[in-house]
């Protein structure tokens, strides 16, 4: 028996020790927003926040995260109360089939937190002084852990930049 805290609510689960957070969410808690693309850390479709940091839920065991705060796409917003990032993806048409979208949105929210904390990236010029500029190049590099087979990248970048620069999802 393990206890997971997902979107603020505690859940007691009787799961096999091998269960990843992704499988716990999808198969045991009925939260199918987080998607399984590759199950090997290669696509980002399963991205969730753990204690505010984005991670691949397919590459981490549920049992290792008792007591941690897990936030999924369902916890960010709901159809009647969208998170600005969800709103912005709608506004900018940041998807085609939609399969990668929950992972993109959760990852983007985590990424903006990292930018706010002054974390540099591979394309940041002067890393001794950090970089908070949200150029397309910075957004692409920081979001490279989320693949989109429909290649909706230009609109995804626009959607993220709008939230990152204005804090708002709708224009």
């Amino acid at each position: 028996m393990i206890t997971l805290t997902v979107n603020g609510a505690e859940h007691k689960l009787d799961v096999d020790i091998r269960t990843t957070i992704l499988d716990a969410l999808r198969d045991h808690l009925g939260m199918t927003g987080s998607k399984k693309g590759c199950d090997h850390g290669q696509c980002g479709a399963c991205t969730v926040l753990i204690n505010g940091r984005r991670v691949n839920s397919c590459l981490t065991l549920a049992v290792m995260h008792e007591g941690d705060e897990i936030t999924t796409i369902e916890g960010l917003g709901a159809p009647d109360k969208l998170h600005p990032m969800q709103e912005s993806f709608l506004h900018h048409d940041g998807y085609q089939c939609g399969y990668c979208t929950p992972g993109q949105i959760v990852s983007a929210v985590g990424m903006l937190g990292e930018v706010k904390d002054g974390w540099p990236s591979h394309v940041t010029g002067d890393i001794a002084n950090g970089g908070t500029d949200l150029s397309n190049e910075e957004i692409s590099e920081r979001m490279s852990g989320n693949l989109c087979r429909c290649s909706a990248y230009p609109n995804i970048v626009d959607a993220i930049r709008q939230v990152g620069t204005t804090g708002k999802g709708a224009a």
Partner: peptide, 29 residues
């Protein structure tokens, strides 16, 4: 490690190497 101010200032090559590896999600773990 990559974001640590001392590492960025004094061991830039280490920050750079870390930031060139994997993805944001993977580096967080």
């Amino acid at each position: 490690l990559a974001a640590d101010e001392r590492v960025r200032r004094d061991y830039e090559v280490l920050s750079r190497a870390l930031l060139a590896g994997a993805s944001g999600q993977l580096r967080n773990k």
